[in-house]
Design a binder for these strands. Sequence first.
DNA 1: ATTCATTGCACCATCGATTGTGCAATTTTG
DNA 2: CAAAATTGCACAATCGATGGTGCAATGAAT
Lengths: 352, 352
Amino acid sequence: MENRQKKKATIYDLSVLSGSSPSTVSAVLNGTWQKRRIKESTAKLIRGLAEEHQYTANLQARGLRSSRSGLVALLLPVHDNRYFSSMAQTFEAHVRGRGQCPIVVSACRDPEEERQTVEQLIAYSIDELIVAGATDPDGVYEVCAGSGIKLVNIDLPGTKAPSVISDNYQGGRLLTEAIVRHFNADDPLQADDLYLFGGRDDHASRERIRGFRAIKRELMDGDADRCIVPTGYSPRTAQTAFEQFYEREGRLPRGLFVNSSINFEGLLRFMAHHPNEMFADIVVGCYDYDPFGSFLPFPVIMIRQDVDGMITKAFDLMSESRPAIRTHVVQPELVPPRTALQGPLDAIKDIE
Amino acid sequence: MENRQKKKATIYDLSVLSGSSPSTVSAVLNGTWQKRRIKESTAKLIRGLAEEHQYTANLQARGLRSSRSGLVALLLPVHDNRYFSSMAQTFEAHVRGRGQCPIVVSACRDPEEERQTVEQLIAYSIDELIVAGATDPDGVYEVCAGSGIKLVNIDLPGTKAPSVISDNYQGGRLLTEAIVRHFNADDPLQADDLYLFGGRDDHASRERIRGFRAIKRELMDGDADRCIVPTGYSPRTAQTAFEQFYEREGRLPRGLFVNSSINFEGLLRFMAHHPNEMFADIVVGCYDYDPFGSFLPFPVIMIRQDVDGMITKAFDLMSESRPAIRTHVVQPELVPPRTALQGPLDAIKDIE
DNA sequence: ATTCATTGCACCATCGATTGTGCAATTTTG
DNA sequence: CAAAATTGCACAATCGATGGTGCAATGAAT
């Protein structure tokens, strides 16, 4: 009854109740009381009152005074795929582990939205920011410049802040090679039957394409520009690309390198209009891992990026005082078909 | 050069530069200047200076003064599955549409974590909060009580705040019936060959189970408690349950109602240790939709909950001044096998 | 030429916590 | 017992924005 009051208690309320000054209350409740030589008994009294009245600090006030907030943000392009959602999950675990408050926002892969969102975050005095897969990382940097925010790019590199990315070239190589080798020696995959679909003109796509071409040249007799079909990161445009190919050729390529699980959803949409038999002889390599994708009716080889490794590295960089502006590369992992890997959810304790 | 200063400009800086008072600057920049009868020319001058010096309001200060923040939060159990990640995506679009700032956090399905997280959010003067799939919605309410936050439960209902949930009973019926009817008449599914795996003792699971049993009684000759195997929402425990069943019976049930896509991942893990042939005669119904899950090598029928409908309803409720404490029910949708539905990502414009 | 209304803005208290500084009371030292 | 050192805390400025109130200057009405 008594502690179901309407307004939240402040240090001033507790100050009156305890007979101490607000600054004493503040010191006791934020842990600096030893430094201020507050008596243990005083501290105990105040802590008791705080407990009794359910005191919680007004973090906006604290943030205003100290120009910090305890908030750590992750800016994603989108939430709705397993790569980024596992990144969010991993990120939260890390931030909580450091005793801070994680928040996740997305900016729809829109440079203007990215900048505006970050501006908002800065206005809330976010302490640290991880920008994942930004369309314009350096634009984000400009917004952050001079705000004192710690900034690390992840997934796509920038030139103004430290970055942590996957080795997309190596991943592209691994995946392409695995596709090629998945075919039997008696009916090997031909160079003009191995296509790459998806992605756009960003660093990750370029590197993966570079790896794709390198393997094609090394393992097969050639490569061609028409074997590369960038579609942007969208299911719809990818679907269109598959359908156009099918219109033209009457079939799909036997070897398909799909540049992201988002583009893979375009292939699903295509599949919905065609029977499974059409995919009998096909091998798909997908950059990014999705557990369900791994068990489709045809062989699906996937690349899992080391999200935990990247996030860990990003926080390492943030804890450095003046991290070098360079790009750190983390190795991704090849995932054979029909593989159910553990993910960040496995770290969560189950009740039930 | 000159606008690359180290510290952010404040209304006091602009006040000096413009020769007006801070309150005038404030009024001009927050839009209340008409009400305060500021001259158009003064306003224009100040807006120009603000632009030039890249002024952005300190939202912590504003929030402190006005005890509002412009932040709207979504509290999820976890990020890393398509149901909740699409919820995050949809939520963000709605909040941005209202000109506010969305933030998403997760609390790992841990009641204590839920309460602590919400306490933090309140400390930042979050204006509105949607709590999705909370283990203890009423516990969250207690924390919010008297803070003036607008609160709506979603996915799992509470008794202290308005709630929006799926019609899980109806969804359970739909899904169970679809599983049964997917078998041929010449070799129909028997009651003791239709199992439900996953979920726990929450409202959603209970309702789905109720629907499951109702259909079993209506369409088949019986039902049995042993056909229901709650595992909690975790891939690992679900996997164990499938493996134990397999140990015991030497096979899986022909009809499988899997209570969430998270539990379905447990089936994937089981699949990784067994050949596809084992699943030749199986029909799976999964509560929650995952596009990749829909295309597995056996028929997978899914339920898609109307996330957009639920979020829309939730915001409708929030905009009411004193919404009734009741539970609103939204109809879910049955998704036949091999179906690639559009999702919230389709609303995002593509830049190629 | 007064009086009154309107315009246009400045002043100041306030939101709740942090932190540098000062000082009385107590304890220690010589 | 006086001087010095330490303990324990209060005071007050501050962070940046908001909004109620007051007041001078200008124009309108009588």
